[in-house]
């Protein structure tokens, strides 16, 4: 399923945060969005999945006009892994993941064996089978994030949006999460803060600055020393990592 965003504009209060953004995520591609804090990455993603009202523009997912479709219909096709949020009440990991079935259920419908199987499968993909009965609030940051990912997988989306999914996570958990997302083989649009992971996992990249797309292309095209210096206001050199053969970065103020 492909996502087409055209001339999207979003205001928070009177301030324009997202300015005339257009982007394309082709079917089954992993597309990343990079840019400094406050450049409007999160706001743009939230506008796309309608958590924030958009001022102008169109968002089309497959053959669905997202901005004109009900939230329930959207959530049947589009899954979102957001940044952490606080919870004051506890659920078990299984109950948490089972909530991912919500979009596919009528208001009074109960969970059946098929739902339980889907949840079981999502837990397996995220290596959480042994955590099924654990309380969500007792989990570590990485485990919590994996639970949220499992919930989104249980939603069986055909497209996934991730908003800095690996924020605050240790290296192993970062890799596990992205590895797992990549294996889903669906269209992905992810805001990422680590350039090396962006280079490693993304098929295509958009670089954002001040609410606009600064440039876009393959990781090699976008992640040049000049662009990175301009985006983040630092000195930067890139090199080819001799061990992984991936792009490497050296930063300096």
């Amino acid at each position: 399923m492909q996502l087409i965003v055209e001339s999207l504009e979003t205001k928070l209060g009177k301030k324009e945060i997202v300015k005339n953004i257009s982007l394309l995520v082709e079917n089954q591609k992993f597309v990343g969005v990079v840019g400094p804090n406050g450049c409007g990455k999160s706001t743009m993603l939230k506008s796309i999945y309608k958590s924030l009202p958009t001022h102008k523009g169109t968002v089309v997912l497959g053959d669905m006009d997202v901005l004109k479709t009900s939230q329930k219909k959207i959530s049947q096709k589009l899954g979102v892994v957001g940044q952490f949020n606080e919870m004051y009440f506890d659920l078990t990991v299984e109950q948490m993941v089972l909530l991912g079935r919500t979009p596919h259920k009528k208001l009074l419908e109960v969970d059946n064996q098929a739902d339980i199987d889907i949840v079981e499968n999502a837990l397996k993909q995220t290596n959480l089978l042994d955590y099924k009965d654990r309380s969500y609030l007792s989990l570590s940051g990485g485990e919590k994030q994996r639970t949220i990912l499992a919930r989104t997988i249980a939603q069986q989306p055909q497209f996934m949006i991730l908003d800095e999914p690996t924020n605050h996570l240790d290296i192993r958990y970062q890799l596990e999460i992205l590895q797992c997302v990549k294996k889903l083989n669906i269209g992905i649009l992810a805001a990422l803060h680590d350039l090396e992971t962006a280079a490693q996992y993304c098929d295509y990249l958009y670089a954002m600055k001040d609410g606009r797309i600064y440039t876009s292309g393959t990781p090699e095209e976008v992640l040049t020393p000049e662009t990175i210096s301009e985006l983040y206001q630092i000195k930067c050199e890139t090199y080819k990592n001799p061990i992984t053969n991936q792009l490497g970065f050296v930063y300096q103020i």
Binding site: I74, V80, G82, N85, P103
Partner: peptide, 10 residues
């Protein structure tokens, strides 16, 4: 789960 997550669940 809060507003943000609930919206993404429709």
């Amino acid at each position: 789960l809060g507003d943000e997550s609930a919206i993404t669940l429709g």
